[in-house]
Design a binder for these strands. Structure first.
Lengths: 233, 233
DNA sequence: CGAACTGTTGAGAGGCTTCAAGCCTAGTGG
DNA sequence: CCACTAGGCTTGAAGCCTCTCAACAGTTCG
């Protein structure tokens, strides 16, 4: 039998913790809470698909969502991962375009759907919200520009090292320096923009160089400054 | 003697034509016009440098500005070109970060500087302005994401063809199908993310395949659907 | 237990980069 | 006015990084 999908807890439906909503008035927060709808998503679920029309954006209150584009021959290009506290699908919504990415659950998640009308209401009534939103998009744009430069100029080896460090920043480590996100080799390849086999070979080399330790999908960091050097940072 | 720098004409200082400012009230427009300052920039001038703190954003009313990041060994990665009607430097300004790109004049330009305070004033007082701003950033973010996918998955040959088509869209052609922007081979390479020599060889191949015609930096399109096919579109 | 997916390793091919040398053009200074 | 220089452009050769193909082991799950 499939494991039961956990109901969203109170903690999962509370959006007050989101920095983005910090400056809302009580009235606005009430409206947001009234109009949002939260639900659980099983691992593997597609939240929305590239090319679809979106009805709102989502706040991630639990789990991890993979955001990717589908390129040549259906090969995925991973744009980013979203975790608790982050929002997804807002880009296409704001520019009123069809979704240009697909969002897939890779760790059992709870998402709160906020309708487009609510988003517009908040933008119209609370400039601090709009301003905060602008900052979020602008940061993501900088990251995208940085990534363009990396991918265009660095070798696959350098990029893989950098991606590992990036994951370390975003998902932290347990007490043994082990990365707390589980990705397939293919997913790593789709972040770096390379072939699965290349990732496998390079990870293996990093292990031989005592930079990391591997155990299935678990990656343990042994020498972070060494990795940083490989990444060219 | 160096040629004189043309004074900005009335046309060069008129921001009313910008879509971004369409929804401003008369009062807001007056304030904008009072607080902005326009001046001419000679070809080759650096408008702002990566790492510097910006005091405002710029509206391009004439000429062409190259926006690029400096990567490994000082190699440029061109992020985009801005022309009449577009704004630059707004990203770093809004996210309150240091500039992450450098902006260089590649065709004699007129820029209108709008102070940060004015930008904030507009965001606070006119939600339609803020909303429009959000749409601009979101569109640019989509383009960046698209480009990441291309650069990660396509060959240099495909990317070069795509870049040529992109330039065609953004800068149009004269009556003889000749591209109206003059770029060095190196700049083309820095857009595509490859070596200058590779661009030269591939352009030469495109010419042999009767896709384009070359005359110095002038590029004339002979077979656009052919190019599109090469680009994998 | 088999099917499907993931991970691993090897071999071969080829796209692209790098290095090097020479040509051409435009701008500079005598 | 012309030689000179610097920067851009072009071409060739060599080699490496990375991809693709292929085969197989390990794992998960119905």
């Amino acid at each position: 039998m499939r494991t039961m999908l956990k109901r969203p807890t109170d903690d999962d439906t509370d959006l007050a913790g989101f920095l983005l909503f910090k400056k809302l008035t009580d009235e606005e927060l009430n409206r947001l809470n009234f109009e949002k709808s939260c639900s659980s998503y099983r691992k593997g679920t597609i939240v929305y698909r590239e090319g679809s029309r979106l009805t709102g954006f989502y706040c991630v209150t639990r789990g991890i969502i993979k955001i990717f584009k589908t390129g040549i021959d259906g090969k995925e290009q991973i744009i980013r991962f979203a975790k608790r506290g982050e929002i997804i699908a807002y880009r296409s919504l704001l520019s009123q375009e069809l979704a240009c990415t697909t969002a897939k659950v890779i760790e059992e998640a709870v998402l709160c759907h906020v309708p487009y009308q609510t988003l517009l209401y908040l933008i119209q009534n609370n400039w601090q919200f709009a301003h905060h939103m602008l900052q979020i998009v602008c940061r993501e744009l900088r990251e995208a520009n940085d990534y363009i430069t990396d991918i265009a100029q660095k070798s696959v080896r350098e990029r893989l090292a950098e991606v590992l460090l990036l994951l370390k920043e975003n998902f932290e480590l347990d007490h043994q320096n082990t990365l707390q996100i589980s990705l397939t080799r293919e997913e790593l390849a789709n972040m770096v923009g390379t072939a699965t086999e290349s990732v496998i070979r390079l990870l293996s080399e990093f292990r031989q160089d005592n930079l990391i330790e591997l155990q299935g999908r678990k990656i343990k960091f042994l020498n972070i400054s060494g990795l940083r050097k490989v990444a060219g940072l």
